[in-house]
């Protein structure tokens, strides 16, 4: 399967449509309940986001018009990606999302070394011992720099696993 420009344009239009829908939904519900959806500039918190959303609507419509009727279709079909091309970035994002999800529960130290290791595997590297060494080195040196010099407290997770350097 090939992902073409048309599909992507549809996707980005849908993205803006969702954003605009959220704006109007929030104005109609939450902001109206709080009493900030009407009145002058002092009390009306809805007028400005509403105007910006309308501007986005007009601009996206303008872009669709340009794409449909004016722009040439000649270069449009370049830079295509197949689903196969997207396998690695998709894996990367999923692994990264899982990492961020686990971070709070397992803490920095138990999750970060595996993350680095797995990303290098996704990239296609296969020398396991070397990768493991690099992963441990990177994870701990980053933790040391941030915790020791910048006084950041990295997430300890449910085990409260923090290293007092």
């Amino acid at each position: 399967m090939v992902i073409n420009a048309k599909f992507l344009n549809w996707l980005v239009t849908a993205f803006f449509a969702v954003i605009i829908a959220i704006v109007f939904q929030q104005i109609a519900t939450s902001m109206t309940e709080q009493g900030i959806a009407s009145g002058g500039p002092y009390n009306n918190g809805a007028a400005y986001p509403r105007s910006i959303s309308i501007a986005i609507m007009i601009l996206v419509a303008g872009q669709i018009f340009v794409d449909q009727f004016i722009a040439s279709n000649a270069q449009k079909e370049s830079n295509l990606h197949t689903i196969r091309d997207l396998r690695r970035p998709a894996m990367l994002l999923i692994i990264f999302a899982v990492y961020l999800g686990l971070l709070k529960f397992l803490g920095y130290h138990l999750t970060t070394t595996p993350l680095i290791f797995i990303i290098m595997l996704i990239c296609g590297a296969r020398s396991i011992i070397k990768l493991l060494f690099v992963a441990i080195l990177v994870a701990f040196s980053f933790a040391f720099i941030f915790e020791e010099f910048l006084s950041v407290v990295l997430p300890g997770g449910i085990f409260s696993f923090n290293i007092p350097w």
Binding site: F144, E148, I163, P164, W165
Partner: peptide
Amino acid sequence: KIRTGLATVAIV
């Protein structure tokens, strides 16, 4: 600091 760090890692 690195030494105490490593020692504490062991303890923790």
